[in-house]
Amino acid sequence: MSSEITIQQQVDRFMQGAGDALTDDTVARLGFMMNELLIIADRVTRNKNIMKLLEMSETKDFAKMLDAMSVAFESYKESPATSGGIGGMLKVMSDPNVQGSLKLLGNFSKELNK
């Protein structure tokens, strides 16, 4: 057997091997998966809201929001349990960052109710 085979022969052997390895069931499963992917892709690409969300996800603000969420969760996990009561609440509320966050949530609620 010659050790040198042409590109065409390599392609032919590859196709033959791929063909022999496939079964009707495999092809049917791949067809099913392709069907579902096409439908999802169609829905996603034609849904204005999802496209807007994707656009938003590329902005710096979006990245900052994700970072903030991550940091907030970490600090929440690490902080000791609060003592509660009005004193504790006043202490949290006096933090300028908390006040800024509440303002953001307030604006969000206002927009939703418009």
Binding site: G19, A28, G31, F32
Partner: peptide, 23 residues
């Protein structure tokens, strides 16, 4: 050919995308 049989086998599962007007 086997390729056309697989095409048909795959199409049997991809019909729904066709019905939705995608392919």
């Amino acid at each position: 050919t086997s390729g056309l049989h697989w095409f048909k086998t795959a199409y049997n599962r991809m019909y729904w995308a066709s019905a939705r007007g995608i392919i």
